[in-house]
Amino acid sequence: MSGEIAIAVEDVSKSFGKTEALKRVSFQAMTGKVLGLLGPNGAGKTTAVRILTTLIPLDSGNATIQGINVSAHGAQIRKIIGLAGQYAAVDEYLTGRENLELVGGLYHLARKEARSRSKELLFKFDLEDAADRQVKTYSGGMRRRLDLAASLVNRPPVLFLDEPTTGLDPRSRIGLWDSIRSLVSEGMTVLLTTQYLEEADQLCDNLVVIDHGQVIANGTPDELKTSLGGDLIEFSVIKRELSQHAAEVVAKFALSAPTFESESGQITLRPVGDGTHSLANLVRALDESGIAIAGLALRRPSLDEVFLSLTGNSPDEANGN
């Protein structure tokens, strides 16, 4: 199964009035893998998902899921996809079980099958105790789990998750991540959108970074981190007032001017050449200048930093947070 292309998007454009939501976007998702569409709010992630799930038509380009053209064969596409959107699209006044059985019925499962499938999913998503309570009594995390369960009733081979954990508390988020991982382990192809780098890092095999409707990078999380230029050295000094001086001392080992964060006292630099070698030189230089080091680390850049360097703003800034 793996190695096959499950979702192929080629040169897809979409405008809403004068706003170009997607500009000749191309990417592929491999069967049995998780592809993350990463980008700030308004980047075009949701538009891409809505096109692929047949909710809106594309303007130009070509999109296929398991080789089936999304624009031409919407009805067929709907049989092989599941969608859990940004809203938990479940009926408040029905119980969890009734929601799943309704969805099962709409997929034309036999009544008995709809019932057993619902039971199975309620168990899987830890909703058995709440199964016969109306959804309006559910917590945010429970709603999302039910929503995810509803998108799986038909056992779709391809699942779309549009910001599945937005608005969830950290515990629910981690619970949902576990659920998603277990789906992938069963061979499902997942395309998820997120603005959380940690989420992308945790869940995704491949990432497509979208900003202003364009793909600005893609690759595995590791590849993206490496593409930023390898390791980073981070250190702080015991006497804070010497931080500025320390930054000047180590500048010759850095590709670009070291950054200094006044609050934490952290000085960060991207070393020239081999990280470990630079580390030794840096320690020696600081020692010779009589500056005592408080903490020192050599690390890979976080996806946050990758994102920052790719888009020129952090996802948090883009959200106005």
């Binding site: 909710l55 709907r78 969608l83 809203y87 709409l106």
Partner: peptide, 17 residues
């Protein structure tokens, strides 16, 4: 508004249902 219609529209459900 609540996303229910999006769910139904992403499913093989008849337009009139």
């Amino acid at each position: 508004q609540g996303g229910m219609i999006d769910r139904f529209r992403s499913m093989p459900v008849s337009t009139s249902s």
